[in-house]
């Protein structure tokens, strides 16, 4: 089983700890919603977990090995990372964009070896992109682009997927779609999925686990059902909220500021 462990991860900017001694052990099969107010340190923590940012103290380990000691290529084969605000810089076809996810698997020169073709087709099918295969990536709608980038992240078959606000900017239907997909990746395929989410109803319904940050500190980590409480929301977001229903029927409603 895949494990990713953060050990007293601390990142300081301008004398202030924006991620403050966060420790947690995450495992394959979990779909972890990383929640917290703006500036709570979610994206910074995610970058540290992805091995893209060196923490000022502490470390992140994948299968017991510090991620920063793995080669970029090795790490890239095991974990995929999707930053905020995705964009294709050139009008390359969707097929080529998705195939870029195989970069760490490919030799230094040459096109896509024939053996990868079925994999590419499967990745496109899995994200409902078959009809868009030859379309220029710059002409995709927001929802289509999000799917294409997800296919890009998954084509390399990573054990860990880290996604920064994967549903921001998507309409309700595509939000549901994306989150359901992320949950399947964790629950059915046994991967570890960590996603920062602002929509707490979505998190309550789909995430198996919840990690909450406040001013860089981890204030809660555990199964969603037991962790997501009005008390936590008060502490994390400074809002009074009610949570009605449970599991797939949960609704998080904000009543007002504390």
């Amino acid at each position: 089983m895949t494990t990713m462990a953060a050990h007293v991860v601390t990142v300081r900017r301008g004398g202030r700890a924006i991620v403050d001694a966060v420790s947690a052990t995450l495992e394959g099969g979990m779909f972890v919603a990383l929640v917290g107010a703006n500036g709570a340190g979610k994206s910074t923590l995610l970058s540290c977990m992805a091995g893209l940012l060196k923490p000022d103290a502490g470390d992140v380990r994948l299968e017991g090995r510090p991620v920063l000691t793995l080669s970029g290529r090795d790490l890239a084969k095991r974990r995929a990372y999707l930053p905020q605000s995705l964009r294709a810089e050139w009008p390359i076809s969707v097929e080529r964009l998705v195939a870029l996810g195989l970069t760490p698997q490919l030799p230094a020169f040459g096109g896509l070896p024939g053996g990868f073709e079925p994999r590419l087709t499967r990745a496109l099918e899995a994200c409902d992109l078959t009809d868009h295969r030859f379309q220029a990536a710059t002409t995709l709608s927001g929802g289509e682009l999000a799917r294409a980038m997800l296919a890009r992240a998954l084509i390399g078959d990573p054990q860990v997927l880290l996604a920064d606000e994967p549903v921001s900017g998507l309409d309700p239907r595509h939000r549901l779609d994306t989150v359901a997909r992320l949950r399947r990746l964790a629950v059915e395929e046994g991967r570890l999925v960590v996603a920062t989410l602002h929509d707490l109803t979505l998190a309550a319904r789909h995430a198996t686990h919840l990690m909450a940050l406040r001013q860089g500190r981890l204030i809660a980590f555990g199964p969603t059902a037991t962790t997501l409480t009005p008390g936590l929301l008060r502490e994390a977001f400074d809002v009074e909220a009610t949570i009605t229903g449970a599991g797939r029927d949960a609704i998080v409603d904000y009543v007002g500021p504390v």
């Binding site: 999707l82 964009l97 890009r152």
Partner: peptide
């Protein structure tokens, strides 16, 4: 030698870095 790197940069710098570039 830079072909793979500039291809990956079509996804932006963060994603290119996450792909091991």
């Amino acid at each position: 030698t830079l072909g793979r790197a500039i291809d990956a940069l079509a996804l932006g710098e963060d994603q290119a870095a996450s792909l091991g570039i």
